[in-house]
């Protein structure tokens, strides 16, 4: 598959992944553009063309980190969301708003898993975490989302 075809196939998911890193549409587009420029230069040296998708996601991640001053998303705790028990306005959110409320360090592995279709081991490799830590983040992210999108009455019933 040529680089153009590879780009055509994965551009949308690369954009969405960049969006969940940057949380900004314009920045996501810039990040993907720059990443594809780097990818285009390096593509002839890519030995396993089958790995092109994971490779492009990694370039997008690196490009985002470069643009953000090499700051990887902190492995923030979900404490902020847990204390939201006292902030009922955060409950009953639409899924996208709930995702936006999730720390980047939790949203990123979710995006890689759901949008990219990568395994826990692959995600761990991409974000530089252990497989166990990655599974924990994925689980906790889903738990937090479930609580955030739960209906307000359901939340009210719990308090």
């Amino acid at each position: 598959m040529s680089f153009e075809e590879t780009v055509r196939t994965h551009a949308a998911d690369l954009y969405r992944y960049a969006y969940w890193l940057a949380r900004d549409h314009a920045q996501a587009e810039d990040v993907v553009q720059e990443a594809l420029l780097r990818g285009w230069r390096a593509f002839p040296r890519l030995r396993e063309r089958a790995a092109a998708k994971a490779w492009l996601f990694s370039i997008v991640r690196n490009e985002y980190l470069r643009a953000a001053g090499n700051r990887a998303p902190d492995a923030e705790t979900l404490d902020g969301l847990e204390i939201a028990d006292e902030r009922p306005e955060l409950f009953g959110l639409e899924m996208r708003d709930a995702l936006a409320a999730l720390p980047a360090s939790y949203a990123e592995p979710l995006a890689l898993q759901v949008l990219g279709g990568f395994s826990c081991a692959e995600i761990a490799d991409m974000i530089g975490a252990t497989e166990g830590a990655t599974m924990t983040r994925l689980t906790r992210a889903r738990q937090a989302l479930k609580r955030l999108v739960a209906p307000r009455e359901h939340k009210a019933g719990r308090t």
Binding site: R16, E29, M95, A98, A111, V114, L115
Partner: peptide, 13 residues
């Protein structure tokens, strides 16, 4: 979750 993550992509991106 998938629907939430699939933010709209600019037309013809």
């Amino acid at each position: 979750l998938r629907a939430g993550l699939e933010v709209p992509v600019p037309a013809g991106f």
